[in-house]
Amino acid sequence: MTYENIIFETEGKIALVTINRPQSLNALNAKTISELSAVLDEISTDSNIRVAIITGSGEKSFVAGADIKEFSDFGKEAAEQLARNGQNILFDKIENLNKPVIAAVNGFALGGGLELAMSCHIRYASDNARLGLPEVTLGLIPGYGGTQRLPKLVGKGLANELIFSAKMIPAQRAKEIGLVNEVFSQEDLVSKAKELAATIANNSPMAISKAIEAVNLSETERGFETEIKSFGELFEMDDKKEGVTAFMEKRKPVF
């Protein structure tokens, strides 16, 4: 499939998705959201791909937010549909994808950009990254999951501070509060994300898929039961047989 606003590349078992609207600091418009949703479907069904990385083009911005001019004149119903549709086709889809998604945050990650990063399973950031949810300065609140995912990552108090103040924080502060996993130079960011992706890609894809599901339910009543059932189900799958056999034979497993 050909995309207009994203670049989709594969390197072995790793997919690299680059949001490519540098003239708009990679802001998320409807077309970009639709294309990201479509590429996630490709990644999900391609058995050769084990891990995905999402980043932005250029050195200034991961995603500077949603494209405000697209919805500036919306009414209540249209705005609700915008938020619901974005959650359904992109943000929730990333979080619940059957393969890990790493955000390589290379610069500004504001509003919808930070919400995109937070929907990913792991976040690496460049040392020039700036992260924030500025929606209240527009008389709005985050609409793509920001009020739900941020408290889970950094705690309710810090989430309130960031959302209410609309302030941007630097990458190092984001690491300190658990919003990003690691911080690297701009030059090393994507290569470090690829290193992690390669490590993940060597592990059991079925086990990782089950782990994603269980972790996503960790704050619900279904979390423990999902873990228990998944643990049992994996015992009847080929990946478990290969992993245990390799361990007993003192060799690396081949999944």
Rank of each mutant, 00 (worst) to 15 (best):
Y3T: 00
Y3W: 07
Y3C: 02
I6A: 00
F8M: 04
E9Q: 10
T10K: 13
T10I: 07
K13Q: 14
T18R: 02
I19K: 04
P22T: 08
Q23V: 06
L25W: 10
L28F: 05
N29W: 04
N29P: 00
A30C: 10
K31M: 12
T32L: 05
E35T: 02
S37H: 07
V39S: 07
I43L: 11
I43P: 02
D46F: 10
S47Q: 14
I49C: 00
A52Y: 01
G56N: 00
S57Y: 13
E59R: 15
A64K: 03
A66T: 03
I68C: 01
I68H: 04
K69Q: 14
D73N: 14
L82S: 01
L82R: 10
R84G: 08
F91P: 00
F91T: 03
V101M: 07
V101F: 03
N106P: 02
N106L: 05
G107E: 03
L110P: 00
G112P: 02
L114G: 01
L116I: 05
S119P: 05
Y124G: 05
Y124F: 14
G132T: 06
P142L: 07
P142R: 06
Y144M: 02
T147I: 13
L150D: 03
L153G: 03
L153P: 02
L153T: 08
L158N: 00
L158K: 06
L158W: 04
N160K: 09
N160H: 08
S165V: 06
S165I: 04
A166S: 13
K167M: 15
M168V: 06
A171C: 00
Q172N: 10
Q172E: 11
E176S: 11
I177V: 08
I177G: 03
I177A: 01
E182N: 09
V190R: 07
K192N: 11
A193E: 04
E195S: 09
A198T: 14
A201Q: 11
N203A: 13
S204E: 14
I208K: 01
I208E: 00
E213G: 07
E219M: 12
T220P: 04
E221A: 12
F224T: 06
T226A: 07
T226I: 03
E227R: 14
K229R: 10
K229G: 00
F231I: 11
E233D: 13
L234S: 09
F235W: 12
F235L: 13
E236Y: 12
M237H: 15
D238G: 07
D239E: 15
K240D: 08
V244P: 14
T245I: 10
T245K: 15
F247Y: 13
F247K: 15
M248N: 07
K250Q: 14
K252G: 06
K252S: 10
P253L: 05
V254C: 12
